[in-house]
Nucleic acid binder design. Structure first.
Lengths: 316, 316
DNA sequence: ATTTTAATTGCAAGCGATTGCATAAATTTT
DNA sequence: AAAATTTATGCAATCGCTTGCAATTAAAAT
């Protein structure tokens, strides 16, 4: 492997000039610089990351830590990963992935944290590097999120506009900010508009929703819309309706949440509140990189990115 | 941040002794060592990874590169990630994630490569670090994979044993080793056993399979089993059958492949050939770590891990 | 033409750890 | 009891790069 020294010798300059040609382009004579760049290419020179990190105290690594016992069946994170990875890449940063088991391994310049639990806060507070949360947290940290409250309101408003007059919120039985926001959004909307409504909470599995519908089928009259807190639940609900002989979307409407991919496998393509996860991932990465570059300047701390309803075949 | 030097001073020894206490426990007097370890804990000393990497030429980072334009809707990789991450973690290695865009960013001690395309081989060959492929490749490299040929044969055998007498292989329309192996496995089995059979190839989307069934419904008599090359296709097929009024599993059987999670959302829980992705990920990581530790000793190069049929409600 | 200022380049030091060799202490052998 | 061996520890050099300051050169101002 060629080193700075090799390049310098070959280009007849000092190591310093080569270093500057790379890191401070303005400080070196243009023609000299192009020459150096050529030599670098000839020698296939790659700066040694370790040496760089050692002296500059910059690893050029960002760590994404997924604390939630990673539900490996959830494509949600995959899309997030893609967004973060792409953005970091553009800034020559590498993405390191850590889980609740491995969060202590490896160094980095900053953290993107998601799926955090109360018990992890002690660890978080002790971090010396900048931190950005993905998803609003209980505590007061910088984060990127979607407006769950508003998103659900939009979903319900749409269902009402479709003409469904009985609104059922199918929530995920979990005590997390995103879920509470959604439920509150639903409650407020149906309250203000005096709508027939109901809230049920289920574990986040399609077949659980299907089973639930089977057992409670008679409780749901025609013209009911199910506003679900995940696409999984939505698909389970839809399957359940169809199995009970209900007609989707004519007599029953189903709206999902997340817009992951499940709509690709459902019998009918799902109407769903689509989170722009790729964009949100990029935003989180960008915010973190800004904090790394300017540790004090803490201008924009909370970034809210709107979800949009993707209208398809499960509503009329 | 405390350095080796700080620890050494506080413990009244030289830096070297501290270094040895960490890396070569046998070479330092036990009581001295425990004392040093205590001081390290007191000072919350963490070895500087950059400095270490610089001199030892070991980054303690493994890079997983997913070349396939990452189908972010595919939980497959998520499960793989979990396996790799867990295994690396146990060996104090960090996992760096790269995609087809970012494969040039960052240094590492070795690579796990997956979803590789012909055009990437030039890059692969030029790598100086050890490489392990996830999934058999066209070329002759070390890899971890499941026996796709055998797995499909097992699926078909099971379907026959269930009493289905018309076998349909629903393949993914892609020119990849895993797919060719599966198709060949099917063809060989039905050929040798003189079974009624047919092969169709579709893009890997559930609703495409559903649509296909709608259009070709009359071509599939009762007592047909669909052996699918993915769970997505299987779910689409199953939905299609049900929508056409067919009875699963009594008149039609459906067998999936992968065992990702889709069975959690299907109307009926899917019988599927389950790849132990977590285990396979761990195996890949372990193989790579072995190659990193002993670059020459190339004993075990191809690791085949068996998939197992997970029998559920979509077959009788 | 001479001084001032700005733009380039080089020198030396050092980031925090590890490797090879040398030294000191403890143990065994003769 | 002296010599040979093993076991522990320390010293110095070094990994490849960047920071701070000094030195050189070119451009601008007097």
């Amino acid at each position: 492997m060629a080193t700075l020294h090799d390049v310098a010798k070959r280009a007849n300059v000092s190591k310093m000039t080569v270093s500057r040609a790379i890191n401070h382009p303005g400080q070196v004579r243009p023609e000299l610089r192009t020459n150096i760049l050529n030599v670098m290419a000839e020698l296939n020179y790659q700066p040694n990351a370790a040496a760089r990190a050692l002296v500059s105290r910059r690893t050029r690594v960002v760590k994404l830590t997924i604390f939630e016992d990673m539900d490996t069946t959830e494509p949600y994170y995959m899309m997030l990963l893609a967004g973060i990875s792409n953005e970091l890449n553009q800034h020559q940063y590498a993405l390191q992935l850590a889980t609740s088991n491995s969060y202590k391994v490896g160094e980095c310049d900053g953290y993107i944290l998601t799926g955090i639990r109360e018990k992890n806060y002690a660890w978080v507070e002790q971090l010396s590097q900048p931190v950005v949360f993905f998803g609003r947290t209980y505590q007061d940290y910088d984060y990127v999120d979607t407006d769950n409250y508003q998103a659900i309101q939009d979903s319900v408003a749409y269902a009402v506009q479709c003409g469904y007059d009985n609104l059922v919120f199918v929530g995920i039985a979990v005590d997390a900010p995103f879920e509470l926001d959604r439920e509150r959004g639903f409650q407020d909307f149906v309250g203000e508009n005096h709508l027939h409504s109901r809230v049920i909470r289920l574990a986040n599995h399609g077949h659980i929703a299907t089973d639930y519908l089977r057992q409670h089928w008679l409780e749901f009259p025609k013209n009911t819309a199910f506003i679900c807190a995940s696409d999984r639940l939505a698909i389970g609900i839809e399957d359940g309706i169809i199995q009970q002989g209900g007609n989707v979307p004519n007599d029953y409407g189903v709206v999902g949440f997340d817009g992951v991919f499940l709509n690709q496998i459902a019998s009918k393509r799902l109407t769903t509140m689509k989170q722009p996860l790729e964009v949100m991932g990029r935003a989180a990465a960008r915010l973190l990189l800004a904090k790394i570059a300017h540790p004090q300047t803490t201008e924009q701390e909370k970034i809210i990115i709107n979800s949009r309803l993707s209208i398809s075949e499960s509503t009329r």
